[in-house]
Nucleic acid binder design. Structure first.
Lengths: 336, 336
DNA sequence: CAATACGCGGAAAACGTTTACCTTCGTGGG
DNA sequence: CCCACGAAGGTAAACGTTTTCCGCGTATTG
């Protein structure tokens, strides 16, 4: 069942059917009605492949995330999908699971399907792998780590703001030994978060103790290992900030295992504000970075870039705020 | 840059280029080499739309889930994606968020993109919406609720097995008042789980107290509400089984809120074995239903159906086991 | 040595749309 | 009253592949 079948039955040309379906205003309402009737009757759905082939527009955006099973991402994906569907776009989702091999496959598939833009939501990325996309002038949007290149947009995240709030919150609660569990330091965003932590300490005149700064890997297991490490030290921290919520969950989990109660004996702050952090025990004080907002910005960036007729020389820069949200995993530092 | 460009530069016909790329064995190795060289040099990637158009095979499977932000699903999606990619398929992911409107949109988009099969991983579904797919003879695979129709496969889940184990586990721990928080009872799978619970009680001669059987909605909030309800009763249960892990998390969360400690004062058992249940506090005893296995079965069902040359009259039935996995959220019933 | 068979590569049709261009018809102005 | 112009629908080319059908050349067999 194709457009010709419709044309025949409605006694018009395929051109008219096409125009009707695409709501070209010049087609006579009478005719249009006749066409629509046949379309409904036969349950005709246009073939997207054929459409894309001739029009050159696939209406597909690629979405690359690092790990679907990290709850941070599904929330973004969901929002992105919502917006995309609303605008008549489809999404091609791939997850890299931190594997360059898979990453390469992702990119290849995106190119083969002729996506019109790609949002790279993984924090950090083998840049060379994107050559193929850049070469074909596919608009890209990065979260946080976009190199300043044409057709490449960037959503910059103001980590400093939320992290400063968190540090000051802890300081106000009389914490003097604050630990920090960073993300994998080959990720630029992890580096930035760590730097923001250090500069926030400095700002209020607190010493930076390198012994209390560890590297995690943005997973629960990483958080558990890191706390294990910190607990062994002679001078334990009374508060720990984490580079993401999963790490914080791991820390709390390990503390529980060791009989250290949160927040009475240990304050913990996460980062991301995934939904779960509201429901964990105890509910986790964390730094919010709105997933809905990220999705919205990413989509907007791509659409803007796609619809721009005069090719821009530089990608646009977007900014996203972060804010501390207080829950139950922080409290006054224990008395010495 | 298209296949003709390659043909010209390699001084062969487009047919030969096509054959080379598709690894048709009859093409001379010498020629093939020449073609590949040009392909590499120019970074040529075949256009999937054109391919699909002429070959009639899109190599896309649709995946309909109810809610990406329920951690149960991303794990399935991830596995499904892995397998799909491995077999050269792409996946078109949509989530219905329990909204018939969105569901309808999903189906429409699947048909327009000409997916070769659809896995419906939402527990329960407006059957009428699938007419369009069935009409076009698109193979479908359901989890647990597939109607016995041609081209429709079904992954039946043996709830009974895991639930019986769980009930017997609780009985052995001397629990006499066991609560059950069901899923939304308009979902067939929720009904089945509840029925399995009841028949397991009956099997060991325990009374079924309708007062202890509540309806949740497979979310944390639902679990919290349900526990709130149960806690008000004069004769509280000493153990609660939940229709999924998120509900169990809600229950534990609410118990914590009320100062009821799990598992000392209350045993809780979940269902699904999402990754998180291993890391919650306390780690949750739950009934495992392997997400990897679900994904694998679903994919296998679709591929089998697609590749079958003689159209089958009936869809195949697959079976998935469930098993209790013991963690820390269950313990001996408190002394009266 | 001739005739048949077979392997391999090329020409061209086909897939289902969109769209540039053309035709036709009606209308308004000179 | 005739001509020109605009609106609206039709014809056909084009999109980038795969695949069928054919022809050519070489090898094999009688």
């Amino acid at each position: 069942m194709d457009i010709r079948e419709i044309a025949k039955r409605a006694k018009v040309s395929t051109a008219t059917v096409s125009r009707t379906i695409n709501r070209v205003p010049t087609v006579d309402p009478q005719l249009a009605k006749r066409v629509w009737k046949v379309v409904e009757e036969l349950g005709y759905y246009p073939n997207t492949q054929a459409r894309a082939l001739v029009s050159g527009r696939t209406r597909i955006f690629g979405l690359i995330v690092s790990d679907m099973t990290n709850p941070f991402f599904p929330e973004i994906v969901q929002s992105f999908e919502d917006i995309a569907v609303e605008h008549g776009y489809e999404i091609l989702l791939t997850s890299t699971v931190h594997d360059p091999k898979r990453m390469e496959g992702s990119v290849r598939r995106m190119i083969e399907r002729r996506v019109e833009g790609v949002a790279i939501l993984t924090f950090g990325m083998e840049e060379s792998l994107l050559e193929g996309l850049r070469f074909r002038k596919v608009p890209l949007v990065f979260i946080d780590v976009g190199p300043p290149l044409p057709h490449v947009c960037n959503i910059r995240i103001d980590y400093q703001r939320g992290i400063r709030q968190a540090v000051q919150h802890l300081a106000a609660l009389r914490h003097e030994r604050i630990g920090f569990i960073a993300g994998p330091l080959h990720l630029p965003s992890a580096v930035t978060r760590k730097a923001a932590f250090e500069s926030s300490l400095r700002e209020i005149g607190m010493p930076i103790d390198p012994d209390l700064i560890l590297q995690g890997d943005h997973t629960m297991e990483g958080g558990m290992r890191a706390y294990d490490e910190l607990a062994k030290k002679s001078a334990r921290p009374t508060a720990i900030m984490c580079s993401n919520d999963m790490t914080a969950i791991g820390v709390i989990r390990e503390a529980y295992e060791r009989g250290v109660s949160v927040p009475q004996e240990l304050s913990v702050i996460g980062f991301d504000d995934i939904r779960l952090s509201r429901f964990f025990i105890p509910p986790i004080t964390t730094i919010q970075m709105s997933q809905v907002e990220i999705a919205r910005l990413a989509f907007k960036a791509l659409v803007t870039e796609v619809e721009r007729e005069t090719p821009s020389s530089k990608g646009t820069e977007y900014v996203l705020n972060t804010d501390l949200v207080l829950r139950k995993s922080t409290a006054m530092a224990p008395q010495k």
